[in-house]
Design a protein around this nucleic acid. Sequence first.
DNA 1: CAATACGTTTCATAATGTGAAACATTAAAA
DNA 2: TTTTAATGTTTCACATTATGAAACGTATTG
Lengths: 256, 256
Amino acid sequence: MSPETPASAIQVIDRAVALIDALAREPGPASLKILSAETGLHPSTAHRILAALSEHGLIDRDSANLYRLGPRLLEWSGRVSAGQDLRQIARPVMEWLRDQVGESVNLTLREGDQVVYVERAIPNRMMRVEQVIGSRAPLHVTAVGKLMLGEAGADATKEYARRTGLRAYTVNTRAKAGTLQKDIDTSRARGYALDDEEAELGVGCIGVLIRDASGAAVAGLSVSAPMERRQTAWIPLVQEAGRRISARLGYQPPAA
Amino acid sequence: MSPETPASAIQVIDRAVALIDALAREPGPASLKILSAETGLHPSTAHRILAALSEHGLIDRDSANLYRLGPRLLEWSGRVSAGQDLRQIARPVMEWLRDQVGESVNLTLREGDQVVYVERAIPNRMMRVEQVIGSRAPLHVTAVGKLMLGEAGADATKEYARRTGLRAYTVNTRAKAGTLQKDIDTSRARGYALDDEEAELGVGCIGVLIRDASGAAVAGLSVSAPMERRQTAWIPLVQEAGRRISARLGYQPPAA
DNA sequence: CAATACGTTTCATAATGTGAAACATTAAAA
DNA sequence: TTTTAATGTTTCACATTATGAAACGTATTG
C-alpha cells in the first residue's frame, strides 16, 4: 500500500480507499493488474473490492476491463463542505471576480494543517497560476491559510509552528514563529492577507475569509497571479467577492 | 439499509457507502445517532466505520461530533471520467457557450440506461433550467441520451426499449420504439439532437456528443432552455463547442 | 494454433469485523 | 451544584467475513 495512505481500524476500507486513490493517480483508466500491483494487493482481493465498488457506482469498468472513477463520486462531491452547497454559491461570484481581475480565483477549505483547493475560476490567458482541485498547501505559506491561523488564535499558531516546523518553500516564507505571527496579526486586522511569493517564487496572492451564518470562517477566497501583474487595486474587489459569498451563506457582519 | 442501496460481496463496503450516502442526503451535518438510525446499523458499528472513513478524509467531524462529507471526495471527483480530465477541459468551453446563448450548458456521461450530469455552466438570469450535478435522466428523454443510443446501434436501442419500457414523462416523450428509433436516426445523421419537451414540459435542449482520441463518444454536451427562448441559431454554436472539447481530447474528425 | 497473460471463481482457513454490554462524556433537569 | 438522561466510545468473546493460493476461463499475441 502507498506510504502516504493512513491506516484505520478497518482493513477493507483502507484497501478500498487505496484502490480508488491508485485509480485517481493514474492518468487514464487502469487494469486490475496495474491496480493490484500499485496497491500491493493480491489480484483476487483487488478484484473483489473493485467489483464491490463498481456495484455502488464509485468506479466504472468498460468492456475492456479497464477501471475508472465513477460518477457517484460527483454526486457526493456536490454535497461536500459547510452545510449548504458552498461551491455552487461561490461559483458565480468567483467567475465575476476572475473577470474583474483577469487572474485565477480559488476557493479553499481548511483541512488540518493545510488548505485544500476545492473550486477555482481560471482566466483565459497564456500565463496564469493554476491550482489543481483537491490539492493542498500548508497554512503558513498561503494568504487564506494565514487568516485561518489568525482565526484560531495565537496559541493555536504556536502549536502549529511546533508541529509543522514552518518549512520554508522560498526565501519569503515566514519560517519563524515571530515573523509569521506578526504577519497574521496585521492580516487579521485589515481583513485580508497577502502571499508575497511565500509558497512559490513569482506567485502572489490576495486572500479573504468566507463566513457562514454563525460567523465561523468556513472557507477562503483568493486571487493568485504572477507577482509582476498583481495590483493592490484588486484588494477591494476580493473583499467585495468575499462579502457577497458570506452574505449568501447568511453571514451578518457585526454593526460597525 | 436504504432500499435503493445495492448489495455487493463485501458487507463493510456496502455499509460504508450507505453511511456516506446517508450523510449526502442530510441537508446539514449529521450525528452518529442520526446516521446509525438512517442506515439501520448498530451505533457501535456505524461509529467504527465512520472513524475509518474520517481517517481517510472521506468525511469530517467537527468538535460537536457532527459528521459531514470531506474534501477528499473533491480530490477524487476532479479525476472522474474518461481518461483525461474531461471536466476541466470542458469547463472553459462550456462557459463560452453559456455566454454565447445565455442559457444553461450541461456536460453528461452515460451510466447504464441513464445520463448523469457531471458539469454545468449556468447563466445569470431569473428563469433558467438548472440540473443538479450527479443527478440522472433516462437516455430516451434527453438529446444527448438519444445520440448515445444511436452510437450503440439499433439492436441496443431495441434492447433498451424492452428493458426500460420507454416510460413517458410528457406527451412529447418518444415512448414507442419506432418513433424513438426514427428520432435517433435523424439526430445521428445531422450530428445533433433535440429534446422538444420530452423530459419536462416547457424545457427544450440541443445536444451533441464529445469524442476522444479513439473516436468513442465519451460524453455529451447540451444547452437547456425554456422552450419559448430556444433558437435554432444556437445549433452551430453547440456543435462548435462540442468540436472544441473533442479536439482537446485528441479527436480527429474523419476526413470528409 | 499454441502460448502467454490477464481476469475470474472456488474454497478451506483464520483473520477480521461484529454488536451486546460496560464505560465515558456531555447535556439537560432538578 | 447534583442527578439524570442521552449520546458517544471502547472492550471483547464470537462467528461471520474477507482472505489469497490455486484452479479455471478467456482474451490477446506471436
